[in-house]
Amino acid sequence: MSTLHAHTVLIVAAILFVLGLAGVLTRKNIIFMLLSIEIMLNAAGLAFVAAGSRWQQPDGQVMYLFILAMAAAEVSVALALVLQIQHQHKTLDVEELKELKD
């Protein structure tokens, strides 16, 4: 029963993950891209929790905590960069971020 349950959650997680990916691909605003990535990370976290529950282990949830911590760290750096971008480019549109290219 729990297997089925876990797999169902996994499907939800996968849908979330794809949604996040779609968000990264479609959004032009950096903030929204970051948000989408957060969604993906959380989808992965959800999958971990589901897996952990499948095997009746706490490891999945431990992992989720790490993911949260890492996401927070990442976002803090990201926001600092966003500020700099806003400062330098006066926009948050990624399409404006094309100075580095061949």
Binding site: I37, M40, A44, F48, A51, W55, M63
Partner: peptide
Amino acid sequence: YLVLAALSSAFLLFGMALIYM
């Protein structure tokens, strides 16, 4: 680098979750 690294981290995590599963 940040966006792509985070993206790849997400993939990594999801993959790990699948394997763990």
